[in-house]
Design a protein around this nucleic acid. Sequence first.
DNA 1: GCCCTATGTGAAAGAGACTAACATTAATGT
DNA 2: ACATTAATGTTAGTCTCTTTCACATAGGGC
Lengths: 218, 218
Amino acid sequence: MTDRTNHLPTKPAPGKAARPPKRAYHHGDLRAALMRAALALIAEHGVKGLALSDAARLAGVSVAAPYRHFKDKEDLLAEIAAEGFALFRDALAVASQKSQGDKVKGLAEMGAAYVEFAVQHRSHFKVMWEGGISKAEYPKVEQPAYQAFLLLRQAVIGLLPKAKPERQQALVSAAWSLVHGYATLMLEHELDVVAGAQSDMKQLRQSIHLLLDQFAAK
Amino acid sequence: MTDRTNHLPTKPAPGKAARPPKRAYHHGDLRAALMRAALALIAEHGVKGLALSDAARLAGVSVAAPYRHFKDKEDLLAEIAAEGFALFRDALAVASQKSQGDKVKGLAEMGAAYVEFAVQHRSHFKVMWEGGISKAEYPKVEQPAYQAFLLLRQAVIGLLPKAKPERQQALVSAAWSLVHGYATLMLEHELDVVAGAQSDMKQLRQSIHLLLDQFAAK
DNA sequence: GCCCTATGTGAAAGAGACTAACATTAATGT
DNA sequence: ACATTAATGTTAGTCTCTTTCACATAGGGC
C-alpha cells in the first residue's frame, strides 16, 4: 500500500534521465516534503482534518519520521504559518509598490493583493488565521506577520498623514477588517449568498473602491 | 435561567449521610448540560481544544453518554452553532429596530450589535464561524444564519433602495466584511497591535461610523 | 576505513471518538 | 397498580492519531 518511492510531485529532476526516485532510507528533503504534503491535505480536508500521520504516509515515510524535523504537529503548522506570512508580506510589498503615485489606488491594490493571496494560498491562509498558532510562542510566525501589518498600516496612514492618531487607527482597523473579513468570508463561501453573477475578484474590487475611494475624500 | 439542577461537579461522597445533589443514573437534562459544558471548555481551550469526553466528564456522566443525545461531536457543535445563530439573529433584529428613523444610525447599531455579540458570546461565535459545520448538512444551522444575513442585507439596502443591484451587493458584502473582519480580528487579539488606549467598542464605533457614514452620503 | 550524528523505523503507550451489549429508570397503557 | 416499552446511562472494547523510545542506516569529516 505504502508507496515509498513517491515524494509528492517530485519536482527535482534538475539533471537528465529521471533517476528512479527510489528513496533508500533517507529521504533527502523530508522537511519540505512534509510541509507540502500537509498543505495538500489541508486543501482537501481543512486544518482540522489534517493528520500528521497522513502527511507522513503521503511523503512516503513512517509516522514517526516527522518528529525528526518538527517538535510536534503544532510546530509543523507554525512553520507553515511562518512561510505563509512571509509570502503574504512579500505579496503586500509588491502591491504597495505598484501605484506609488496614486495612494488611493495603492491601497486598493494592497487590499486586492490581500484577498488574492487568500485565494491563491488557501491552505497557507487558513493555517495563518485559524491554525491556532500563538504568535507569542513562535517568533518565526510573528515577525513576518507584523511586517505585513506594518505595510498595510503604512499604506492606510499614507492617505491621512496629518489626521489625529485616533482617526488613523480607526482607519487602519477598518481597512484591515474590510479586506480580512472579505477574504475569510469568501474562503468559506459565505459571500455566495450575496453575489450576483459577478466574479469574486470583481466584486471585491468594487467593494474596495466603494469604500477606499472615500478614504481619500477626507 | 438554564440552571436545571446543578449537575456539573458531583461528588459521590462515599460516606453515608448527606443527601448531596446525588444524581441517580438519569441526569435530567444532559443535552443542555453537555452544550453548556462544551461552551465552557471552548471558552477555555478553543474549538479545536474541545474534547467531547471532557464535556461528558464536566457534566458528570460517562464518555459514552453524549451519544444518546448527539450523533457525534460535530452534531454537538452544529447544535451550538444553531443556537448561536438564533441568538445572533435575534440580537441583530433588536438592533435593527433601535433607530428606525435614522437608517445610517440603524446600520451602525447593527454593526455594533454584530461585534458585541462576538464579544459576549465568544464561544458560540467561534463555533459558528470556525466550527467547520457545513450549513448544507445542517439546516438547523443554515436557517437562522440566513435570517441573520437577510437582516443585515435589508439594513444595508435600506440605505440605497434605488441603486443598481451590483452596487447594492458590493455594499452588502463590504459592510458584512467590515464588521465580520473586525469581530474575528478582535477575538484573536490581532487588533491589539493597532489600538491606542481606546477601548475595543469605542474603536469599533469609530471605525463603523467612519465608513458607514459615507454610505449615506451616496 | 571509522566514528559521529542526522535521519528514518517499528513498537508501544496514551488519549479521544465512537460502538455494542447491558443496566436502570421513566412513561405509558390497561 | 403493574407490566411492557422507550429513554437514557454505563462498562468494555475497537480504531485512529499523537508522541516517545530504542534501534537501524547512511553520509561526511578525519
